[in-house]
Design a protein around this nucleic acid. Structure first.
Length: 766
DNA sequence: CAGTGAGCGAGCTTCCGCTTGACTT
């Protein structure tokens, strides 16, 4: 018999706490929720006051039976799930499942894992708060109702296996609407005037860089202005020097960690979470799913010590940050090093990099402000009202910047650093060169995974534990895709004035280049439009915030949770029925025009297997022709010419080695098909529309040669191949690993067969 | 995996949040 059993949510947490509590306490974990609404059907008895039908999912049965055993062997049970809505519900489910008494089971909470916090918690137990539990039930049931009533509408009206939900559908909407802003964006350009001035004609080294107050939309106007500049006298007419400060960003939450790991380390959101999980399990960082910027007193003190030891007293400034995020529940600390005195850890390269980022951010948050000095110099010219201004910034005291500065989302921010020379008011200046360079306005940026998380968090939608899964879901459903785009070339015109002479030139730049950005796909746009049309309340950006207010009221005991659900459902269910009865199937169909030769109608729509162009009508004698859209094309934006171009492929180049050789574009880009084998065209080098037979043969021979080197052994249907992860065996399109000690080149056919059989067997058992 | 696009119909798909592994590549 154990004296005390403490149940927490996370096994790593259990381990740490057990150390603090000593041998009278046994600490175990529930691994999150142990019960949920029934998987099949709705799992809610709507007629009977929304009575939920809770089930223990299969994968939780072992955890639950272990918990039951532990509970039976313990005198006192303490439930220490997190101090938020979900944690309270977990506590309540535990009490139910373990047959404990709701009126006497001790519920304890702490939001930091320190000895002090835990012993305080043990001294002040309370009971489960049913109002908080009910607000969770309302949340859970509302999400189930929304997801399980709208999704089937999509199966009927759009396509099978689609999904909709309070969180994911808004995420998709953000991406779709941003894309439409980009589509409708009109780029404009203007000439920006920049000057390099000299303080003295004799000293070409001491320069002052400045920019004119006016931009010119037309090239002739810019030229005229430069000619004016050529004969002007320049004079400094104002100097202002202002001190300023910059403060460190708060310590990491899940969302800000994901953003910075993407900006600074190029980690995807999922990658960040999995690396952080490793660090957490190894005891190197605190919990990684949190919305709080709070640091424990222990962490504050340790950080302070580390800063003073490393940088000195004047770099230290202890601060506590207020969490600003809407709906934050602050059950945990901010994400910080478990031991702030350790600036690095051992582990994989990614673990070390992420740890270092977390360490720097935490330490910087406890450091002094940076002191800066902003200088602004005004310059006038005697023959024009246009003025120039030069700005500069000098860091007087680096403070936290010594360790860390937050990255901005903006791309290609090329900041040239140079120091403003000493100048005086009234000083004459002489131009060295003045140039007018064409600058283009840029459309709003596409979302990255991380910037989408940031936006969702701002809207109060989703939780730290769901940001990464949500982003996976909307990609898995095919609503959006993370893609790159090569961009296009664009000319920039420049006029330069040197020594009284102007000269024009032009450069090219790449515009619209994208890397790992979220693009909507056709099905995402069609589903989004359907939802906005029929379920505007649910996909409204403020819907979550509004229901959260009601959940808060329920938690406060001011609102009955069944009443809240009843009110929501009665109107929601009507919109579901209405959309089922009165709406047609949505395919996103769009007529592009008539075929220039045959006069047949050309249209695009979402077909059974994806977006297609159709030439001709279904009901005429001749069968219509179809062609799939390319990965980079959208139903919404494809032109007639682009659509017709799709019919030029696949095309035959004639016979080679007795069989037809065909060029096409498939899932993985342009390809050659010959004798039922596929060969990819070289990216950028080969154009499928113009490639010749000669070149196609070359590619085939080259590929066959490298394929030969891949084969280590050939036993007919069993092959030993050299792959990305080393040698492996393949049979019937299934791959089998070769254990490390074995030499792939010396395996016999019998040995291969036994590896295959063993592998298949162990899979059946699993 | 590089096509496919007639129509019918059985049976399936689906939410958000809380936790980790167990998988394969």
């Amino acid at each position: 018999m154990v004296e005390n059993l403490v149940i927490v949510e996370s096994p790593a947490k259990a381990k740490t706490i057990e150390k603090f509590l000593g041998k009278d306490f046994h600490v175990v974990s529930s691994f999150g929720h142990i019960r949920d609404l029934a998987k099949k059907n709705l799992g809610i008895d709507i007629e009977n006051g929304f009575t939920p039908n809770y089930e223990i999912p299969k994968e939780k049965t072992k955890v639950v039976s272990d918990l039951r055993k532990n509970a039976a062997e313990s005198k006192n049970i303490w439930i220490a799930s997190d101090e938020d809505r979900e944690g309270e519900a977990i506590a309540w489910h535990l009490i139910n499942v373990l047959d404990l008494d709701l009126k006497s089971t001790k519920r304890i909470v702490f939001h930091e894992i320190t000895k002090e916090a835990i012993s305080n918690a043990i001294k002040t137990p309370r009971l489960v708060d049913m109002n908080l539990v009910n607000s969770q039930q309302a949340r859970r049931i509302l999400d189930r109702l929304v997801g399980f009533e709208i999704s089937p509408v999509l199966w009927k009206k759009v396509q099978p296996a689609l999904s909709a939900g309070r969180v994911q559908s808004v995420a998709v909407r953000l991406i779709v609407e941003r894309e439409r802003e980009i589509i409708s964006f009109k780029t404009e350009s203007a000439f920006r005037i920049t000057a390099v001035f000299l303080l003295s004609k004799d000293d070409p080294e001491t320069i002052l860089k400045a920019e004119a107050s006016k931009k010119f939309t037309k090239e002739e106007e810019a030229l005229k202005f430069l000619e004016l500049c050529s004969s002007a006298d320049y004079k400094i007419n104002s100097i202002s020097v202002k001190p300023g400060t910059r403060s460190p960003a708060p310590p990491f939450t899940t969302s800000t960690l994901q953003q910075e790991a993407f900006r600074k380390l190029s980690f995807s959101v999922a990658q960040t979470m999995s690396v952080a999980q490793k660090l957490y399990e190894a005891g190197k960082i605190t919990y990684m799913r949190t919305d709080s910027t709070n640091l424990s007193n222990l962490a504050l003190a340790k950080s302070r010590d580390a800063i003073i030891a490393e940088f000195g007293e004047k770099y230290s400034r202890t601060r506590q940050f207020k969490t600003k995020t809407k709906g934050a529940q602050e059950a945990h600390e901010a994400i910080r090093p478990s031991y702030p005195e350790k600036s690095s850890v051992t582990g994989s390269q990614n673990e070390r990099k992420l740890y270092e980022l977390i360490w720097k951010r935490t330490i910087a948050s406890q450091m002094a402000d940076a002191l800066i000095e902003k200088t602004n110099i005004g310059i006038e010219m005697n023959n024009s009202p246009v003025t120039f201004s030069a700005t500069g910034e000098v860091i007087k005291f680096d403070g936290f910047l010594r360790v860390y500065s937050e990255s901005a989302d903006l791309e290609n921010h090329e900041e040239e650093k140079y120091v403003i020379p000493p100048v005086k008011n009234g000083m004459p200046l002489y131009y060295n060169s003045i140039s007018a360079t064409e600058k283009f306005t840029t459309s709003p940026p596409r979302y990255t995974e991380a910037s989408l998380v940031k936006k969702l968090e701002e809207l109060g939608i989703g939780r730290p534990s769901t940001y990464a899964p949500t982003i996976s879901t909307i990609q898995n459903r095919g609503y959006v895709a993370k893609e790159d785009r090569p961009g296009e070339k664009r000319k920039i015109r420049t006029i330069e004035l040197i020594n009284g002479k102007t000269s024009s030139s032009s450069k090219t730049e790449i515009t619209g280049k994208e890397k790992s950005k979220l693009f909507p796909k056709d099905i995402g746009m069609i589903v989004n439009d359907f939802l906005v049309e029929n379920f505007s309340e649910i996909v409204d950006f403020h819907f979550t915030a509004e229901v959260e207010l009601q959940f808060d009221e329920i938690a406060e005991g001011n609102l009955k949770w069944t009443g809240m659900l009843d009110k929501f459902y009665s109107s929601f269910h009507k919109t579901v029925e209405n959309s089922l009865e009165n709406k047609n199937k949505k395919t996103g169909a769009r007529l592009l025009g008539d075929h220039p030769e045959t006069g047949e109608p050309v249209s695009v729509k979402m077909g059974r297997y994806g977006p297609v162009v159709q030439v001709g009508d279904q009901n005429k004698d001749a069968k219509p022709k179809f062609a799939s859209l390319l990965k980079s094309q959208l139903i919404e934006t494809i032109t007639l010419a682009e659509a017709l171009n799709l019919f030029r492929l696949p095309r035959s180049l004639g016979e080679y080695d007795g069989e037809d050789l065909v060029i096409g574009i498939g899932k993985f880009g342009p390809y050659i098909r010959h004798k039922n084998k596929f060969y990819s065209l070289k990216k950028g080098a080969d154009d499928p529309y113009v490639i010749t037979m000669e070149r196609a043969k070359e590619i085939i021979l080259e590929k066959n040669e490298t394929d030969k080197q891949k084969v280590i052994q050939d036993f007919g249907e069993i092959l030993v191949l050299n792959g990305r992860y080393g040698p492996y065996i393949t049979k019937d399109k299934k791959n089998y690993r070769i254990s490390k000690g074995q030499d792939a080149a010396k395996l016999t056919k019998e040995e291969c067969i036994s590896i295959i059989e063993n592998n298949d067997k162990s899979k059946q058992n699993a």
